[in-house]
């Protein structure tokens, strides 16, 4: 029983401080706008989507409402489709590669910018441009640069004799996958760099000096001092980057629309096609619901490890 309404006539005896429980209720009321906001923008669509995934919903049902409850039928349909598993595999491959490239580049840049040299801050801010540039701009610029007939990258490679003739990067399965991986990694690199740089700056110089005195070289200092001390930051950077890359839609959609063929058909595009190209809203909902599982699992893992860090 947590009611807070007091009988009338007792107000005059209100003490200076309200009882603990009642006060907490009042505090909770302040959260109400946030709760309403989250409920309306996150919870409702989520529940709606999950509900949709258990119904038979085509164009007619989305317009007129209704849609018969079909239980797990849509899930069985999707899990039995090669295309779904293909999209999941491509998603994991794309995310894994992009995170690996972004992390390697981000780490290299962070170590570099952790040193003191003139113009460091300016360079750092310039690098952030890749992160703040709207994807619709960066993805289209990548698409143009990678074009076979007028693309900059082709011209460069041709001028140094690496390739001969037109190479249409986005028209061939493997080059297209690498292209979207690199474009994604390029935009995530500054984000990782900033996170790692913050971590690096938290490592006391004295540790490096001590290692130096013990005769450790630059590489040894990196592997034995930097990496172990950066572990929590690394974990954060990797997980956040993995989660946001896994749900990336715009970069790949703008560059290849999931093509050529299905070479870059990541789950978000697969789900988009199901719902908005083929108007199978039910199986599209299944795909997006299942798509949640990977980031959700990682988020749980992330918060668990955060708590463990805090406890230790």
């Amino acid at each position: 029983m947590t009611t807070t309404v007091a009988p009338p006539g007792t107000a005059s005896t209100t003490p200076a401080r309200a009882p603990r429980r009642a006060r907490r209720w009042g505090d909770h009321l302040f959260v109400l706008p946030a709760v309403l906001f989250v409920a309306a923008t996150v919870l409702y669509p989520l529940v709606f989507n999950v509900d949709l995934s258990f119904r038979d919903v085509g164009v007619a049902q989305i317009v007129n409402g209704g849609g018969e409850w079909v239980g797990w039928e849509n899930y069985a349909d999707q899990l039995g489709r090669d295309e779904f598993w293909h999209a999941l595999a491509i998603s994991l491959l794309y995310t894994g590669l992009a995170v690996a490239v972004a992390f390697a580049l981000g780490m290299a840049l962070a170590v570099y910018f952790n040193q003191r040299f003139p113009g460091r801050n300016l360079m750092r801010s310039l690098l952030l441009l890749a992160w703040i540039l709207p994807t619709v701009v960066s993805a289209n610029v990548w698409r143009w640069m990678l074009d076979g007939s007028y693309g900059l990258i082709n011209t460069l490679l041709e001028s140094v004799g690496l390739i001969d003739g037109d190479l249409f990067w986005l028209a061939r399965p493997v080059p297209a996958l690498f292209a979207v991986v690199f474009a994604t990694a390029w935009s995530f690199t500054p984000f990782i760099m900033i996170l790692l740089l913050a971590g690096l700056q938290g490592i006391p110089d004295t540790l490096y000096e001590a290692a130096k005195i013990d005769g450790a070289g630059a590489w040894r200092r990196f592997t034995s001092v930097t990496m172990p001390l950066l572990k929590p930051v690394n974990l954060t950077a990797l997980l956040l980057c993995f989660i946001s890359t896994f749900k990336t839609f715009d970069t790949v959609f703008l560059m290849t629309r999931g093509g050529p063929g299905e070479a870059t058909m990541i789950l978000p595009i697969y789900a988009y096609n199901e719902a908005f190209e083929y108007f199978r809203f039910d199986t599209g909902a299944v795909a997006t619901t299942l798509m949640l599982v990977v980031p959700l699992g990682l988020s749980v893992f992330y918060f668990r490890s955060l708590r463990r860090e805090e406890l230790s």
Binding site: T14, P15, W25
Partner: peptide
């Protein structure tokens, strides 16, 4: 029983 003022405000 002594929280009327606050409760009204809430």
């Amino acid at each position: 029983g002594r929280t009327g003022g606050r409760s009204a405000a809430w």
